[in-house]
Design a protein around this nucleic acid. Structure first.
Lengths: 194, 194, 194, 194
DNA sequence: CATGAATGAGAGTTCATTCAT
DNA sequence: GATGAATGAACTCTCATTCAT
């Protein structure tokens, strides 16, 4: 598969990503992707064998980008509270953005493949989130910004709340106010009262 | 529809519930249900037109039972902390129980139908949970058991964490320790320190 | 599957038999049979899962009929030579009849499935033929009609020649004269010269 | 087509021969051959248009070699019985050798193309075999080694038996004992009893 | 009411064949 | 000559849905 094919493969992945974002994982057929890409039936099979394989490759790409995001935060020179605020802001943006989100597809995929899929992306990202947040909280505690008796569980708590918001966003919708309320509640729970 | 038919309809719903618990919502076909019930293809269509309709009726039944559960707690004569502990214990049991749970099916269903489904069951139950917890926290604050500046957001926070735990349980698995950690963290956040 | 379905199943088998007779085994698709039967695509799958399964059932029917034929001969009251002549005459008829013969399909099927197929029909019929002929030759020898030092190999020889004629008939064609020549040669080899 | 191309063409034929030996004729696709050869899809079409054409050219090569074999026998200075024994020995070797044999592919090919293929290789080889054997038997009769009233049919008989053994070998398997039994039977039928 | 045979639409998959490079 | 990406036809198989009995 030469350079040109790599380009086309990427084109298919990008197009398929849109399809998955629209229809979730389970409803997407090879035919859907073929039609979205405007290529021939057989053509798609030159690159991928199944929707599952396509989705996995899309996930790999996403994971890459997500990792980049996470590591980006830590390098800043801001205070712990600033960084946490930034992190939550970004999460909020993602939560409220409807279009182009793979959330539903990802959940559908891992409902079926979560246990068998070694190196489960959702798992890895959740754990990574907890780790980053835990470290951040500890930093904040050390600097006197935060008060927290159990940084580990506090970090996990934040991640669970984000998961909860995410799933509710997809099953019955959330408002910006709801997100703001929770994020404020989280921040206030950590900040040392003046 | 006579009494006999009502019985058969109920039989179909009960059997179909098992099928949905096993396979989620999207993968279940009318054929699956027909086979699980041991009835004829045409027979099923006398009672239901689609898996969606069947699932909706199952959800109605579930909602009824869930409501019963919630209202059950409040009637106790225990302290707010006791009731909350009881509530969380029950949530824990549900979180850790794998078999027979409709969780995945429900999520899959509302991913597709969440916005269109008026009277969305997930939504109603989430709101109900928040309301009950808010009232409970307020009671606890009044009795001096709890300290909480924003009972509303605290209640929502608990519900979001439970959602987060629930979805993680289905996508990559959670351990009892993880649940205990979070539930303890929640309780400690509310209890007035001695 | 009620009585009516049994009839339709038989109809499919009879129709499919014609298709296999025309096109051999490997070239026949489910679609071919569907079209020959004038039924729907899905309809065929109610009765059979694959061309292989259909062919196997056809073979079972054939085997039944073939067995009936064999046993028919022996019951006669004729001399051994008469019976053998009759047997060879019938073989000749089959050899020269082109239409409706499953020969090619059978060979094609057993090329692929001969070793795995327990209870290989071709094998059973060949052995049965040898046994019947051996017994017949021994009878003829006892009655003084035949002269033969090794009835077993003589019987096998006849069966091999018949196989050879059969395959040649299908690969490049044989004439009646060629068959007659061989059959006469076989008879003369056995008959006691006057 | 230059010398280099001729070499490549030969390489394709040799490789394809192995493929046909493994899978017979009908199951082999252009793709199979392309992959076995490790060349490009388009590359194969520069030399051949179809599996049929490839197979025909392979058959031509085989025929050449087979003819060489036949003529080889006659040139010896041995007695007729010796030559016949040698011939049968070689036939036995071929019958028992499973790997690398084109037998199945050849039959499959001629099932479909036997009648249309002018200059049918199977036909020519069968006839050639009969002619050689007939001449040999006549020689043996003249020298007093053999007794045979109808050399022509005796020769044909041997060829038919060999065909029968060949096809049985491919459809349900034969043992060395079975071959030996028949070959001995043939020899004894010709030899003048001492 | 209940049955289950029948239909046909549609998804998956494989290959022969072509063609721009 | 040689490549291999691309196409589209053909086949397999599964279901939702209908309907005569």
């Amino acid at each position: 598969m030469g350079e040109k094919s790599a380009q086309k493969k990427q084109y298919i992945l990008d197009t398929a990503r849109r399809v998955f974002a629209e229809k979730g994982f389970k409803s997407v057929t090879m035919k859907d992707i073929v039609e979205a890409c405007g290529i021939s039936r057989g053509g798609l099979y030159l690159y991928f064998d199944s929707t599952e394989q396509i989705f996995q490759e899309i996930l790999s790409m996403e994971a890459q980008e997500a990792d980049d995001l996470f590591t980006g935060h830590i390098s800043e020179e801001d205070t712990a509270a600033d960084i946490l605020t930034l992190f939550l802001k970004e999460q909020k943006k993602e939560l409220l953005q409807q279009k182009g989100s793979l959330t539903v597809a990802v959940y559908e995929y891992f409902f079926a493949n979560g246990s068998t899929d070694k190196n489960n992306m959702l798992h890895r990202q959740f754990d990574a989130g907890v780790r980053v947040l835990e470290k951040l909280i500890k930093t904040g505690v050390a600097s006197g910004e935060f008060y927290c008796e159990d940084p580990r569980e506090a970090a996990a708590n934040i991640m669970y709340v984000l998961e909860g918001l995410k799933i509710n966003a997809k099953t019955f919708g959330i408002t910006e106010k709801m997100v703001d309320g929770q994020l404020a509640y989280i921040m206030e729970g950590l900040l040392v009262e003046v």
